[in-house]
């Protein structure tokens, strides 16, 4: 679910097509993809729209068990 607004003016992450749960810190989570999944990075229109925000999306794919 993507947020409608964003009071913190920070980009959000959403994952579709996977079961996700919290990981060891507040910014990350573990997901189980039983089929193809999609990851979205979304930045709301709230605030200064012209301001570019740079960040890094880090993905770690666990080895197969």
């Amino acid at each position: 679910m993507l947020p409608d607004g964003d009071e913190q003016h920070m980009p959000r992450l959403a994952i579709v097509g996977a079961y996700c749960g919290p990981a060891l810190d507040t910014h990350s989570f573990f997901c189980l993809a039983k089929r193809d999944a999609s990851v979205f990075v979304y930045h709301s229109r709230v605030g200064d729209q012209t301001r570019e925000v740079n960040g890094t999306l880090a993905v770690w794919r666990q080895p197969q068990p």
Partner: peptide, 19 residues
């Protein structure tokens, strides 16, 4: 993998990851 992401207000990026 670490992927640089640059977004402005209203932008959305999408990537597909295979099961």
């Amino acid at each position: 993998l670490a992927v640089p992401v640059q977004v402005r207000g209203g932008d959305m990026r999408q990537w597909r990851l295979a099961a």
